[in-house]
Amino acid sequence: MNSRVLVLNQDYSPLMVCSVERAFILVYLKKSELVRSSNGHKIHSVTQSFPMPSVIRLNRYVNAPYKGVNLTRQNIFKRDNNECQYCGTKKDLTIDHVIPRARGGKDTWINLVTACKRCNAKKGDYTPEEANMTLSRKPYKPSYSIFLKDHLNGQAGEWDVYLGDNHH
Rank of each mutant, 00 (worst) to 15 (best):
M1L: 14
S3W: 10
R4E: 12
V5R: 05
V5E: 07
L6I: 14
V7A: 03
L8A: 02
L8K: 10
L8P: 10
N9S: 11
Q10M: 06
P14Y: 01
V20Y: 03
E21C: 06
E21R: 15
R22C: 04
A23E: 00
F24M: 13
I25Y: 10
L26R: 03
V27Y: 05
V27H: 04
Y28R: 09
Y28V: 03
L29Q: 15
K30Q: 14
K31I: 00
E33R: 14
V35D: 01
R36P: 03
S37K: 09
S38I: 04
S38H: 09
G40E: 09
H41T: 03
H41V: 11
V46R: 15
Q48G: 04
F50D: 12
F50K: 07
P51Y: 08
P53G: 09
V55A: 01
I56D: 03
I56F: 08
R57C: 01
L58T: 07
L58G: 04
N63Q: 15
N63S: 14
A64V: 14
A64R: 15
P65Q: 14
P65Y: 13
Y66F: 12
Y66T: 08
Y66W: 02
G68H: 10
N70H: 14
L71S: 08
Q74W: 09
I76C: 12
I76T: 10
F77W: 12
N82S: 12
E83A: 02
C84A: 04
C84G: 07
Q85S: 02
C87P: 09
G88F: 01
T89A: 07
K90S: 11
D92I: 06
L93H: 09
T94S: 15
H97I: 01
V98D: 07
V98L: 05
V98P: 07
I99S: 07
I99C: 09
I99L: 15
P100S: 03
P100M: 01
A102V: 11
R103G: 06
G104V: 11
K106V: 02
T108G: 08
I110N: 13
L112N: 08
L112G: 04
A115W: 12
C116P: 02
C116L: 03
A121L: 10
K123M: 05
G124N: 05
D125Y: 12
D125Q: 12
Y126A: 03
T127S: 13
T127D: 01
E129F: 07
A131K: 00
N132Q: 14
N132K: 15
N132Y: 08
L135I: 11
L135S: 02
R137V: 03
K138S: 11
K141D: 01
P142S: 12
P142W: 05
S145Y: 12
I146Y: 02
F147Q: 12
L148H: 03
D150M: 14
H151F: 14
G154P: 04
G154I: 01
G154A: 05
A156T: 09
G157H: 09
G157R: 08
E158A: 15
W159Q: 05
L163G: 13
D165G: 05
N166F: 14
H167R: 08
H168A: 13
